[in-house]
């Protein structure tokens, strides 16, 4: 339970950080809020050669929003700032849902959304809502910048599509479509701090009482935050009824691939997927009426 030895850098510019990252090569890790990376090191699951802290780099801690362009969350923007952001609450309530239940006050004061994504835990709370919102991540390296749909970002537990030498500088969230609604919910055995054994994020678009488009992402029930394509297909273009919602829950449970671990059994997780899917769909529908 002690931190291993490592070298520490606090670059002042993004370029400096990228150069360092390249120079240090394998074994170099980026640190944003540190709430994941430090815990991993304490548990002996990670022994970095060097840690490159982003905190002193100017200009990447911003959260910017305009009703024309959408939302951009910078790499070092803290979770607490998402939580208190009125535009996010208004336009992206499912993201607020997620950060509200995440961790605790202290961790939210330290941790970042981008860190939550880069850490790539299957249970990462911001991943499901951000994926359903069609978010795009901006990955920067010395070679330049590339944009990648968040949907394609997660490759496995702790594994992402990021290449060696890349830093995620921001995540961009497009404006929600008219008549769309989003919701995020998770299960936990206690109300305070908890790593959820199952969660679901939904974003659905309605035309009259028809679900014209939908995205459903399940957390903590697969190696990555899981797009539930089959369930989406089942819902898309259908008349919105109780039966449809019930079926969707069932389908999502089938589609999920949970494991049993110290937090919950696979079986119960599947059942929770059904419940969460239904409940997020209901809330998404309610919220869509306001948009």
């Amino acid at each position: 339970m002690r931190l291993p030895k490592f070298e520490y850098f606090t670059p002042k510019t993004l370029n400096e950080a990228l150069a360092l990252l390249k120079e240090q090569g394998e074994g170099a890790y980026i640190m944003a809020g540190g709430t994941d990376i430090v815990v991993k090191m304490l548990h002996g699951r990670l022994r970095p050669k060097s840690v490159i802290a982003l905190q002193e780099i100017d200009g990447i801690n911003k959260i910017s929003f305009s009703p024309q362009e959408g939302l951009t969350i910078g790499a070092t923007a803290r979770i607490v700032n998402i939580l208190s952001h009125p535009d996010i609450l208004q336009y992206y309530p499912a993201l607020t849902d997620a950060v509200k239940v995440m961790a605790n006050i202290e961790v939210r004061n330290m941790g970042t959304v981008v860190g939550n994504l880069c850490n790539a835990a299957p249970s990462a709370d911001t991943a499901p809502p951000l994926i359903t919102m069609g978010s795009v991540v901006v990955l920067t390296s010395l070679e330049g910048e590339r944009r990648l749909s968040l949907d394609e970002f997660f490759k496995g537990p702790g594994i992402t599509a990021m290449n060696q030498g890349e830093i995620m500088t921001s995540v961009f969230v497009p404006l929600p479509q008219p008549r769309s609604g989003g919701s995020y919910k998770r299960i936990s055995a206690r109300c305070g701090v908890d790593i959820a054994p199952a969660s679901a994020g939904t974003m659905a678009v309605f035309r009259d009482e028809i679900c014209s488009d939908v995205k459903l992402v399940l957390g903590a029930v697969a190696p990555i935050p899981l797009r539930a394509y089959r369930t989406e297909n089942l819902l898309r273009g259908k008349q919105w009824t109780h039966e449809l919602i019930q079926d969707a829950g069932y389908e999502a449970a089938e589609e999920s691939m949970p494991i049993s671990d110290c937090r919950a059994s696979a079986e119960w997780r599947k059942k929770m997927v059904a419940v969460l899917t239904r409940r997020t769909l209901v809330e998404a529908y309610e919220r869509s009426k306001k948009n």
């Binding site: 919910k185 936990s188 919602i245 409940r279 209901v282």
Partner: peptide, 13 residues
């Protein structure tokens, strides 16, 4: 099975 679709306020974020 019919079930209550009201979102449950507690313990589910």
């Amino acid at each position: 099975l019919h079930c209550d679709l009201e979102p449950e306020p507690y313990k589910i974020g």
